[in-house]
Design a protein around this nucleic acid. Structure first.
Length: 547
RNA sequence: AGCCAGGUGGUCAAGUGGUGAAGACAUCACGCUUUCAAUGUGAUAACACGAGUUCGAUUCUCGUUCUGGCUACCA
């Protein structure tokens, strides 16, 4: 009898679960190898939390010699976005997340367990749903939206658990003959699970991160096949992760409460259970309160934000790894230049509670990352960013390539490296005043400090030009600076000045400042000696002359 | 409202039945320095609350509270 019903519900399905079991055999992998996946909806957006999870999952698979694959969960037409798949693939590639199997672009997929796009797996889900109906474990439901609303209202009034279960599951109680009749009458339906659960009983499962968790059994007759013939997330999860032979289901924390349902589904389908790993949610500090970082309110929720703002991927990954395993920070300190892939992740050390995403800390991580780059690397990566996001700067960097590299190399070698670049967008402020185009053509105010009298300034600059020699080493150079200071009534040493402030007009620092400001328009710059050297005599004279 | 999970400085966090309760970021001070940055030294600052078990609880148990997640023909 159930067979008749099943055939009526899915008249075009002739494959059986056994067929698919054979088609997708168990994977031949070494001991401890983890098979896991990234399973996003193609919404045209990669959330930082997804990147966090994907970054962990891909590394976890990699460090166990396992498999990491991409599966597109496009069973909800409403959410879909054009080019969604490419956004995902390219967006993750930026962060070194790569897949062993799955779609590689819009039209092509690799791997033996495909298709990896759920909308292309319709018959597979239906074959499993059909077999469930045959076994009397699922049934067609004819309830309309209005009827479901009514049930919900009634439940709200009675202040009981909402949902389609027990006495509220009207279609569950219908006779098969009646179901068959209604289908033959052309009535619309969806397919529901006939849940055998008893909410007074508990189920337990062990989460790799959280340990043992106990829940009431699921008794909801949830929808498994929607009216468009596509499966719901839950059903697709069970079928796909089984058939694709996933060993570890790594996903966001928001799925924890569906686990009892998933356990039930796996059991009813006769599937072996995967290990569940529920990742903590990344949070955001919103005026003192904590909330999930949100796509709508927080630009930093998008993985693409970091590229746009010029934060190197290494920094983002370091920060994410930091949240993942707190011992990463120490490891990074000991191995400043190593690839982050050399770090071994311990899944059990992942913290259970969601971390607040701290952009300030990220900036610090990023400063250290960039401090480890050579001037050449800073130039290359900075230029790559500028080409896309700051064209004007890119042009200048290219026009003065050697000069720019020279500047970027200031205080970059040796043990105490300058750390004033946290993101490529800082580069403009670091460089622009040294380019003549900007210095002379863009308005800026000279930030004179203690010495503001124009005549004195002019005199100092004139005198300085007389003694300046590009070939001087730093000591000689600074001694000359002191000579000039003395000549104009400034102390040679700061300490000297501090002892007797009345006997001097100021100290050598004030004189240096005059030169610094005349040259750069700023009070604060990197090492003046180096800057002079990079500018060269011609530019120096030109800049002095303007005063 | 119900179910589930989690609360160690402002943030990320280590850790324990007896500790001066690590470390990093942030903040502040001082030192070095021609400015800034860097760096060095130091400082501020935490076991959510209440009971119970115990000689002793931040750690174990229970309750309270706060926070987060879920309660769709969305994922």
């Amino acid at each position: 009898m159930s067979k008749e019903l099943a055939n009526l519900v899915f008249p075009n399905i002739d494959k059986t679960p056994e067929y698919y079991e054979e088609l997708y055999p168990k994977r031949n992998l070494s001991d401890g190898a983890v098979v896991t996946r990234f399973a996003p909806s193609p919404t045209g957006f990669i959330h930082i939390g997804s990147l966090f999870t994907a970054n962990f999952a891909s590394r976890f698979a990699r460090q166990t010699n396992g498999v990491y694959y991409l599966r597109i969960e496009d069973t909800d037409g409403k959410r879909e976005v054009e080019d969604g798949i490419n956004v995902i693939i390219n967006g993750l590639k930026v962060f070194d997340v790569k897949f062993d199997e799955g779609p590689v672009d819009e039209n092509n997929q690799v791997g033996n367990y495909g298709p990896y796009i759920q909308s292309q797996r319709k018959e597979i889900y239906q074959a499993f749903a059909k077999s469930l109906i045959e076994k009397g474990l699922a049934y067609p439901c004819f309830c309309t939206e209005e009827e479901l609303d009514k049930i919900r209202e009634r439940q709200e009034k009675l202040k009981i658990r909402p949902g389609y279960y027990g006495e509220f599951a009207a279609c569950r109680k219908m006779s098969e003959a009646q179901m068959i009749e209604r289908i033959n009458n052309g009535e619309k339906f969806i397919v529901r699970l006939k849940s055998p659960g008893n909410p007074n009983k508990k189920v337990r499962y062990t989460d790799l991160i959280r340990g043992v968790i106990e829940f009431p059994e699921n008794d909801q007759d949830i929808v498994i096949i929607k009216s468009d013939g596509l499966p719901t997330y839950h059903f697709a999860h069970a079928v796909d992760d089984h058939l694709m032979r996933t060993t570890h289901v790594i996903r966001g924390e928001e799925w924890i409460s569906s686990v009892p349902l998933h356990l039930q589904l796996f059991e009813m389908l006769g599937f072996e259970l995967p290990t569940y790993v529920h990742m903590p949610t990344i949070m955001k500090d919103d005026n003192g309160s904590k909330r999930k970082i949100s796509k709508r309110k927080d630009p930093e929720a998008a993985a693409s934000y970091y590229k746009e703002n010029g934060i190197p991927k290494e920094a983002v990954l370091d920060y994410l790894l930091n949240i993942l395993n707190s011992n990463y920070e120490l490891w990074r300190k000991e191995n400043p230049k190593a690839s982050s892939f050399d770090f071994v992740i311990s899944p059990e050390k992942i913290s259970v509670s969601g971390a607040m995403f701290d952009l300030v800390k990220l900036a610090d991580v990023s400063k250290n990352t960039i401090a480890n780059f050579t001037a050449e690397e800073v130039y290359t990566q900075g230029l790559e960013w500028a080409e896309e996001f700051d064209k004007e700067l890119a042009e200048l960097m290219k026009k003065y390539e050697a000069f720019t590299k020279g500047i970027l190399n200031i205080e970059r070698t040796g043990t105490k490296v300058r750390k004033d670049i946290a993101k490529w967008s800082d580069l403009r402020d670091n460089l622009e005043y040294l380019y003549d185009e900007v210095f002379f053509e863009k308005e800026h105010e000279d930030e004179w400090q203690n010495v503001t009298d124009k005549e004195t300034i002019k005199a100092i600059l004139e005198e300085y030009l007389k003694v300046y020699d590009e070939n001087d080493d730093k000591d000689t150079w600074f001694n000359k600076m002191k000579d000039v200071s003395e000549k104009f009534g400034f102390a040679r040493e700061v300490k000297e000045y501090k002892k007797n402030p009345e006997s001097f007009k100021g100290h050598v620092g004030d004189v240096s400042t005059v030169i610094r400001v005349a040259l750069t328009g700023r009070r604060n710059t990197p090492d003046l000696y180096e800057i002079l050297k990079q500018l060269g005599r011609e530019r120096i004279v030109k800049r002095f002359e303007r005063i």
